[in-house]
Amino acid sequence: MKRPPANTIAVLGTKFRGRVGYRVNPVGLIGLAIIVAWTVVALTAPLIIPHSVGEIVDFDYFGPMSRTLWLGSDYLGRDMLSRILMGARYTVGISLAAVAIACTCGVVLGMTAAVTGGWVDTILSRLLDALNSIPSKLFGLVVVAAVGSSIPVLILTLSVIYIPGAYRFARALAVNVNTMDFVLVARIRGESLFYLIRAEILPNILGPVLADFGLRFVFIVLLLSGLSFLGLGVQPPYADWGALVRENIGGLPYGAPAVIVPSLAIASLTISVNLFIDNLPAKIRDKEEH
């Protein structure tokens, strides 16, 4: 039986049947498992925490890890494990909401700009570029200084900060797709802007856009943690992971788990997302012989 060379396979396409499969990298799988685990924790936190987050359970503060308190106690003697589990709600929830808003707005605007072109594109790009030239932490600082810090404000601020990036990314991709003849064909068929964006552009940029979604999620988690660490993010009595580090920074000289563990929680989430993106399951449409 003759086996054709790789680059002639397409030429002989009729003889082969497309077979769709996925190749998953174990590293990516580990990343995915950790992401899923944190998501489950965020959803079910109130049910699984061993102690109430406000309850003082240790006579000592900055207690070490022990059989009863797995992650030690914080600066008031509260259970760190419970606080971390509850913190996941804020870190994951706020970041997810913000990234969803940022990417949706950015991608829709980016595609519109790319397909419309002309002055719409120029004005949108110029405005968003200007927004982008305000360092993100600074933007957070200024907004918090002006309106204070509540969770809706945080979500909105974080998403506004990352809209320009999502816009730029989506626009660059869409501009590339827009130069393709199939868009031109649809255009001279008389299709509407909405159809062009939905049917011709979006399906062809979806993969990279989803990867960008993940990357931006990481940025937002880091920025949120940074703001909370500065005392500008989630405010007491609630606490996300960044705020937990801030609360317990006094334990740093003692090397208390209360300072280290929240940082590790953030790192575990962000590194997992990065690993997952770098090892996305490759969809394989390989041709196999009958």
């Binding site: 393709m180 003849d181 064909v185 049917a199 011709e200 399906p203 062809n204």
Partner: peptide
Amino acid sequence: DTALNPAK
């Protein structure tokens, strides 16, 4: 190659 939408 470029005249046909690869996603359809």
